[in-house]
Each structure stands twice: as structure tokens, then as C-alpha cells.
């Protein structure tokens, strides 16, 4: 499916890599789920007590419990 509207196409493009989509579809069958890590992280980011990089790092670390590519 192709979208002719440029705005919709831009949003659809974002969906390919958007974290809520990825955590909701792929990282929700083991604990801690991607959703819970991302939600509490984003809340802290909005409150200014975590940087986006720190949220990303904590998400990666949490998911690495069961997602092999993230394990060092």
C-alpha cells in the first residue's frame, strides 16, 4: 500500500522504526516487557530526570534478559 498524502506517508515511515510499535509487537512475551520499560523511561525523560540516551540504555539492558542480539 502506498500513501499519496505526504503527511500520512511521513507518519507511516516513522512507524517502521517507532519504539512503541516494536515494543508492543516484539518485546511483550517475556519480563520485563518493552512497554513497561519504555513507559516508565519516557515519563522520567519528560520529567527531566533521565536523558533519551539513558532511557534507550535502560530499555536495551532490560530487554537483553531475553533478546539475544542485545546480550554482550
Amino acid at each position: 500500500m502506498t500513501l499519496s498524502d505526504p503527511m500520512l506517508a511521513e507518519v507511516a515511515k516513522l512507524n517502521e522504526t517507532s519504539m512503541p510499535y516494536i515494543t508492543a509487537v516484539h518485546f511483550r512475551y517475556e519480563t520485563p516487557t518493552g512497554s513497561e520499560l519504555l513507559q516508565s523511561g519516557v515519563q522520567k525523560m519528560m520529567a527531566g530526570s533521565m536523558t533519551p540516551a539513558e532511557v534507550g540504555a535502560s530499555l536495551t539492558q532490560g530487554i537483553s534478559r531475553y533478546f539475544k542480539p542485545f546480550q554482550k
Binding site: E36, Q39, S40, G41, Q43, K44, A47, S49, M50
Partner: peptide, 8 residues
Amino acid sequence: GLNGSPGG
């Protein structure tokens, strides 16, 4: 809420 918001 269950998450202990804001941000735990």
C-alpha cells in the same frame, strides 16, 4: 496507578 507514576 499500577506503574507508580510519575516514572516510578
